[in-house]
Design a protein around this nucleic acid. Structure first.
Lengths: 365, 365
DNA sequence: TTGAAAGCGCTAACAA
DNA sequence: TTGTTAGCGCTTTCAA
């Protein structure tokens, strides 16, 4: 690897002149000099060492991205959008870390980022509190948190970008209700993150608004290692079992996300229940997988690309160490993709009549 | 952020002493000095700056990982295993890049890695040739290539870690044949990578061994943006259409990977064909998703964790710039997970009799 | 229009 | 056992 010195020697100029051309200060030199330097750079295949530059400037064009698990298709999707946008718009590369939702792993990742000179980070954490994030800001980082609201009342130094989970769940729930469902359930996993609790609130609120509060419950399939794994089918099975054993099972189910919906459908099928004939399911996320499941999953589409861009923009918006000005960006999903996993509830004439009030829309693929 | 100077001052020692404790050379100092330095480090919350260190040593604890798209669940899975292992075993962090199988993006990623001082990289490329990888080695990188064989005859400086795609496809094909299928097809996408061509060869060889060469063909669903996207369903649909329009359609299909199998099942269903009653399908990869599809997908399980570890180990095995010694590690998959997507072919008594020769194994979930 | 030189935070000879 | 010092490759005043 050639250095700036080599280039200077080759072009018979000083290193500062080379540095000047590297940094676009070409106005302060003769055309001829510029040409010589450029020729030397090409000849030597010179690429400035980001590290040395950074040691000087204190800035490194790296963005940290912390996810529970990159094997989870939703996080993979977000990660792709983040990386692509950061790269194309800002020339930043992405340093990624799986945290498995573990406190210590998260902390260790922050330490390493700091040591590497990384000053901008996007965090999908869901740890109970965000004090560690505030601490990172204190240490000079710009941090953007995904999928949680800013703590109300407290002013935070952390930027927040999140879907409106309350609304997303409400949208899904109202869709089921509009199709005549009166016995509702929300299917989730163990562990209460803010986004899950917001979804549950949205679900219950929508049920309440329809006078169905008494018939809406929250079902928990047990612990899930959140990163798209075999365990998902176990959770789906457990959940399905709960529903089967129920003397008065729900007919309309809102799943905490698409993966959960898929796992649940597998569990239901194994238990001998048909979707949507016996039970209707709505997911949330809008993963591409929801389009090819059987039945194709009706789901609330989240604006992933937009959110990813917003996160990157926030992360780039200010100098590290600069005062807060942290914002909260809430993306309200308005788009429910109608597919095949929802139908009117089985039996009951009353419900059927109810359902007929709706013009059943043609499913999109 | 405090520096080594601050620590030295605080502990009233020289920077070299501090450096010595940072680098484990604690034997060459008094207990008491060590204690003072350690106290200072704790007090100042000092973390050595990786960058400065690296500028000196020329080593940065960063591993490059280049994937077509991290949104593809298979690459997400591999990435998780790679990151976790690199971190836990070697304390390395992972710098990730999506290349969308684009030549220029790949080249740009290598340039940036070099500029960042990264000297070890794992590449899932599938570009036609590997000259750019050899060039990277020449420039001092240790590069490990996934999912392709070393070019025979040529000795390469690039390490290769790959599943035995020929065998994997053979395994899948023989399984279908054992279940009585005589009209076979291999479902793939446009674009011939080495791994795809190996799979096709394995498929055709297995068919040939059973005297079925004339009844085995390769079907191409058109271009796919390889990164798990809506397009997948289009490809599945196109493929299904080809099969439906066929006067003598195949009954047993080997899909190039699990995602293709899933997309194909969706397309088939849309075209009115049932899996496995009308058509049987075997996937390859063993994604967790294959376990929750409907029907659950019979698939060849690849040893992802083992391969990921092997790749990291190879990447760490030598100093950058050191002479080659490049190896080829081929993982032969032996495990076919029997689930629900394969049954004897429809109709034909002969085939049925054939199938009865097999003891149908209980499907694993 | 160009160059000399200090210094970013650290490592590792080499001296003391 | 501890300290001094010369860089690693670059940026950026300040002088010439």
């Amino acid at each position: 690897m050639s250095t700036i010195q080599d280039v200077a020697r080759h072009a018979a100029v000083s290193v500062s002149t080379v540095s000047n051309v590297l940094n676009g200060r070409t106005d302060r030199m003769r055309q001829e000099t510029l040409a010589r330097v450029e020729a030397a750079i090409t000849a030597l295949q010179f690429r400035p060492n980001t590290l040395a530059r950074q040691l000087k400037t204190g800035q490194t064009p790296l963005l940290g991205l912390l996810v529970p698990s990159i094997a989870n298709p939703m996080y993979g999707y977000i990660a792709r959008e983040v990386e692509t946008f950061a790269q194309e718009q800002y020339g930043y590369r992405v340093l990624i870390g799986n945290t498995y939702r573990d406190q210590d792993k998260e902390a260790a990742f922050f330490e390493d980022l700091l040591a590497h000179g990384v000053r901008r980070v996007i965090v999908i954490s869901s740890l109970a509190d965000e004090r560690h994030l505030e601490r990172a800001v204190q240490r000079g980082m710009v941090v953007v948190s995904y999928d949680r609201r800013a703590t109300p009342g407290e002013l935070s130094d952390v930027d927040h970008v999140t879907p409106d989970n309350f609304e997303a769940a409400g949208l899904a729930t109202r869709y089921l209700i509009a199709h005549g469902h009166t016995r509702l359930a929300f299917a989730t996993v163990a562990g209460m993150t803010m986004s899950r609790s917001d979804k549950i609130k949205g679900f219950l609120a929508a049920a309440g608004d329809a006078g169905l509060r008494e018939h809406a419950r929250v079902l928990d399939g047990g612990p899930l290692n959140e990163y798209g794994d075999a365990v998902l089918s176990e959770v789906g099975r457990a959940l399905a079992q709960q529903m089967v054993n129920d003397p008065e099972p729900p007919t309309g189910i809102v799943a905490v996300n698409d993966l959960m919906a898929l796992g649940l459908m597998a569990g239901l099928r194994e238990a001998g229940l048909r979707v949507p004939e016996d039970m209707s399911i709505v997911g949330m996320d809008g993963l591409f997988l929801s389009a090819i499941s059987n039945p194709a999953l009706t789901t609330v589409q989240l604006p992933v690309t937009e959110m990813a861009r917003a996160m990157v923009e926030r992360a780039m918006s200010r100098q590290s160490g600069q005062e807060s000005n942290a914002s909260e960006l809430v993306f309200t999903p308005t788009h429910l993709i109608e597919r095949e996993s929802v139908a009117p509830p089985p039996g009951r004439v009353r419900t059927r009549a109810h359902a007929t009030g709706m013009k059943p829309l043609k499913a999109k693929k």
